[in-house]
Design a protein around this nucleic acid. Structure first.
Lengths: 365, 365
DNA sequence: GTCGCTGCTGGTAGCGCTGTCAACGTTCCT
DNA sequence: AGGAACGTTGACAGCGCTACCAGCAGCGAC
């Protein structure tokens, strides 16, 4: 003996065990797998722990068990509304579980991501959530060698490292352009900022749709590497307009840009949708509140986060999903900004969904 | 011996020490306080660590040293733009330091905050950042008993637990109303949502300013506990207008509401600023991009986060600031939505700052 | 009655690192 | 020259928990 109730009066597992009249290891089991105890001991340990206000020491647990109960999350931006919704989903789903979230910001740099990945992996996380499908070769190798479940989010594509939840940005963009064609628009401009891989894929979808219709024109595309903003939306649109005054629609790579375009039109007295139709991407809350209301492609951001975390936790606990790739789809929410003539009553008429909406698995490993 | 290079081939400190030809404890010191080593050993350990790709085991370190290198952060919302800016500041300032951020969401509940606080404190964090000054008595007691530096952010007030960074929401609201008075407005409405303590203080500031001018009227105030949104801004403004059609200005508790008011005015063909002036709060990016541009109270959110994290880290490392309370101030950014007659060229004329802007300490413990 | 088998419990031995303190060599002072 | 003072280093003993394996009942099967 010689050591009991050491400094700082912290309650240790041993104290709980002593009070409950069991061995420390039995008390330990109570916290990890209560089912394994007899009912009698279980209640004894439980009340002892409560009485002493015992809180397990996670560092000791991690050291002894050689693993942590941390889920690492790598996202490219903390400012972008899109990620705050995803994050909220992740935090909500992890709450109540034993796992805690460790967040890091890659700032849209895959090199930074690689660095952070190395850091995370060294601490043996219980699981990992990474953004997108564009990792460096090195990152990819580390992820594949990792001993924990991995979830890639925001996007789906071929060759998942492990699990994947997202939707096709390419298809979503195509659907948005198809909607504009439906409305009789032909000269559709593209406005994009930041141009991360997902925005690039939206541009690809736009380009393919335009080409298929024989309407592609490189000059209709205005992009910049600058981070997105409402102000930038206005500026890029002004550029586009200066170059191609005869456009009849603009597809914006995100909603901030779309709002910027809306304001720029107002500034120039361009009628929406009569002269120019606007379609955004993500369907942030303000899109339904603006004047005119703005059409956008709704993405299931919160669900992406919460489902990703929930599935990851299941996988950590041994229950691997039958389908590792989950397509959460998207919906083109048609609003005033893109409706050529007055349509039926509902401002949300015509929702577009992918063929097999909820579980359309696009690729298997 | 008998145990070297154990399972999983992980490099331990002992291996590094062996390769460097020093004792483990010396190698340990290299990572915590390199200055304490002779230059010769320092370089030896350094190259040995690099050669082996050594990564310290944080769990073991935490267990042995009885403290962690984790900074806990408690914020009320992950969705609110305001907090994402603050968070970005916190993450940026912690990057490069040895400390990692552990984030939790209180969802605007001080009971939830108390629960999370208990959880955090049990893991002996290196420091803690909490939002606001309205904690439960129990939380307050725990914070005061904590053995680590504590930073309260977003707001300043009397009796800091330890350190505090923020600004006076009361004064900021008063400044906004003063600006409207300057512009000749008298019937100033207030539109607020969520009504957390900081919004409440803005309302108090509004009320005080109105009373001082003899213009206070309870019916000018429209609030709700519902979470804020652009749509809600329009709805609340509609309520206000129905009740008090003769208002000539609206002070919105945040920018989303202000944008909603702007759109509602557009919907009703109310001229801004001729018929109604609008002032928001926070000065989010879109306020400068809208048509008309929207006046707002700029708050230094990113700086609040980065300064808080930087000061906290300093304090953790023993360098306590000479002034524990830091007022980061605010600025009324005057734009078209509140300017009665055409003013001087600069659209940002008339910036208002608190008397001693950068370090006006309002209260000392 | 013996042999497994299962279900529960406990002992032992670390997990990888750091706090403490003693020991050492060197320098500087008297 | 002797000793104090300093800077640098290492031995030892855990930090609080869990992995591993052994032990011990209680049970049914043969």
């Amino acid at each position: 003996m010689g050591r009991k109730r050491t400094k700082s009066g912290k309650i240790r597992l041993a104290e709980v065990a002593e009070l409950a009249g069991v061995s420390p290891i039995t008390a330990s089991r109570f916290f990890r797998n209560p089912e394994a105890l007899s009912v009698a001991k279980r209640t004894r340990v439980e009340s002892a722990a409560r009485e002493l206000g015992y809180v397990p020491n996670l560092a000791a647990r991690a050291l002894a068990s050689q693993r942590t109960e941390v889920i690492g999350v790598l996202i490219p931006s903390l400012t972008n509304n899109v990620f705050s919704d995803v994050l909220r989903g992740i935090y909500d789903a992890s709450e109540g579980s034993r796992y805690s979230i460790q967040l890091s910001n890659t700032r849209y740099s895959i090199l930074q991501e690689e660095k952070l990945l190395r850091l995370f992996l060294a601490q043996k996380p219980a699981g990992l959530i990474v953004t997108g499908i564009d990792q460096t070769t090195e990152s990819r190798a580390m992820l594949e060698a990792a001993e924990c479940p991995i979830m890639q989010i925001m996007e789906i594509g071929p060759n998942p490292v492990d699990m994947m939840i997202g939707f096709s940005h390419y298809d979503a963009a195509r659907a948005a352009i198809a909607h504009l064609f439906d409305q009789g628009r032909h000269r559709v401009g593209f406005v994009g900022a930041r141009m991360d891989p997902r925005v690039q894929r939206r541009l690809d979808g736009y380009g393919a749709a335009m080409k298929d219709a024989g309407l592609f024109d490189q000059r209709l595309i205005v992009t910049t590497a600058t981070p997105t903003s409402v102000t930038l939306g206005g500026a890029l649109f002004a550029d586009l307009l200066a170059r191609e005054p005869d456009i009849d629609a603009v597809f914006c790579a995100n909603d901030d840009l779309a709002l910027g375009v809306l304001f720029e039109c107002r500034r120039r007295d361009i009628a929406i949708p009569d002269q120019i139709a606007i379609v955004g991407f993500n369907d942030l809350e303000f899109m339904a509140a603006s004047v005119p209301t703005l059409t956008s492609v709704r993405t299931n951001r919160y669900e992406m986060g919460s489902t990703a975390a929930a599935m990851l936790i299941e996988a950590i606990e041994g229950k691997r999903p039958e389908r590792p790739v989950l397509d959460l789809g998207f919906t083109v929410i048609e609003r005033q900004s893109s409706q050529t003539q007055r349509q039926a009553a509902s401002p949300r008429a015509g929702e577009w969904m992918p063929a097999a909406q909820n579980d359309s698995v696009t690729n298997e490993p």
